[in-house]
């Protein structure tokens, strides 16, 4: 009797364990299988200053610099009808060029199904070109001689960058944080946000977006910001030394920085509001333009 009871107990105990194991396998197999089929991890040996290009329609692209002569790429897709083509030049030996391109196997694929996400670790000094039509791009801790990032609707964030940076997004916001070298950032309806740049040359332009600049103007720097109808806010420390040329046609000019006003020769009659002056010794050059937006220059 006791044996039969014990057997029943063992039998009852075995079933839940078995079911649990099956359940766990079922739960885990999904993502595991998905991981195997959707994510790819590759490493390429490269020459010292390779050229890397990424062409993508949707998804996130993250690029970080590192000190290895390698490109480590991890990319994943949602749909089995999307693949990532990789072209390495030359095919053997350290790569001078690597091209990543998201390819739709089904031309009728739409929306989120087109998504491909990339995470790249690339050597410092890489020439980088990224086009992500409707996806966001993020570049961190990178030094590049010539870096181009373009998007249509995606936002772009670049932080701790050194080199020449060209960024353009038709409708997405652009954030440039702690950049040095030369920076150009353009959008039509997106906002531009610059934080603590130490660039020698900075250009920023947006048509209906807003511009926010937070930081100092390094000696010898050349900064030119332009927006059409959005507002422009400049927040700089009291120690910033710059020569200012600010002009708006229909908007307002609000300045809190003490300025030595420069004498201006006669200019054609215009309804523009303008301010030409020098703060401290005028070591940097700052050029601000707006058509109908408000330009505000304040102490941080």
């Amino acid at each position: 009797m006791a044996d039969r009871r014990e057997q029943k107990t063992k039998k009852r105990g075995a079933i839940p364990y078995g079911q649990g194991l099956v359940l766990c396998l079922l739960v885990l197999s999904g993502p595991l299988v998905a991981a195997d089929t959707n994510r790819t991890d590759k490493t390429f040996e490269t020459s010292p200053n390779p050229r890397i290009t990424v062409a993508n329609a949707r998804g996130q692209i993250l690029v970080r610099g590192w000190d290895k002569a390698q490109v480590h790429a991890v990319y994943g897709v949602i749909s089995p009808h999307v693949e990532v083509d990789t072209e390495v030049v030359p095919p053997n030996g350290p790569a001078d060029k690597i091209h990543f391109a998201t390819h739709l196997l089904d031309p009728l694929l739409t929306g989120r199904d087109q998504t491909a996400d990339y995470s790249l670790d690339v050597p410092m000094g890489t020439n980088l070109e990224i086009r992500n039509t409707q996806g966001n791009v993020r570049i961190e801790r990178f030094q590049g001689d010539d870096t181009t990032v373009e998007s249509v609707g995606g936002s772009i964030l670049v932080s701790d960058f050194t080199g020449h940076l060209f960024v353009r997004s038709v409708g997405g916001n652009i954030d440039i944080i702690r950049a040095s070298g030369r920076v150009e950032a353009y959008s039509i309806t997106g906002d531009l946000h610059f934080v603590s740049p130490t660039t020698s040359k900075l250009r920023g332009s947006t048509t209906s977006g807003r511009i926010l600049f937070e930081g100092d103007f390094p000696d010898g720097g050349d900064y030119s910001l332009s927006e059409y109808s959005g507002d422009m806010d400049i927040l700089c420390p009291p120690s910033a030394s710059f020569e200012l040329s600010a002009k708006t046609d229909r908007g307002k000019l609000q300045n809190e920085m003490p300025m030595t006003i420069r004498h201006q020769a006669a200019t054609p009659l215009s309804s523009a509001n303008s301010l030409f002056g020098t703060h401290l010794t005028g070591k940097a050059t700052v050029n601000l333009r707006s058509f109908s937006g408000t330009i505000r220059i304040r102490q941080r």
Binding site: T110, G111, Q134, V170, G171, I188, T189, T207, S229
Partner: peptide
């Protein structure tokens, strides 16, 4: 794509 078209349309309206 609709969202792509909307982005372009908004930019053209602004311009």
């Amino acid at each position: 794509a609709p969202d792509l078209k909307a982005t372009y349309e908004n930019s053209l309206i602004s311009l």
